[in-house]
Amino acid sequence: MKTVKNESSKGSPRPAHVLQKSRLWLMYPPRLITTPVVWQLGQKHKVITNVRQASVTDEIGIVCLELEGRRADIKAAIRWMTNLGISVEPVEINIIES
């Protein structure tokens, strides 16, 4: 079952099987720029990937990605990317301010 977040669901625990969306900025180091990371991500993890913006130069790859899946699968996907050496930030980037 797919649910959409709304006011009434806010603040209550979400059942494990419910799908959720996560909006992320990925920043690739130069050595990964030519690697098909998003494709690999979809192969290795049960998540739906949806690229919204991307900018690739010789020095950095920046991808704005939406992931949809179960919370545990999204967390595993993020862990896999960070272990590869990709910087994974929420779409807001730096939420923790001084």
Binding site: R14, T82, V88, E89, P90, E92
Partner: peptide, 26 residues
Amino acid sequence: HYDEVNRLCAEIAGKYGWAFVNVNMR
């Protein structure tokens, strides 16, 4: 780690109907 704390804060901000000053009120 900072990155984990940052991502959790993003999740909390998205889940609860609060005015998160530097997220949904940004």
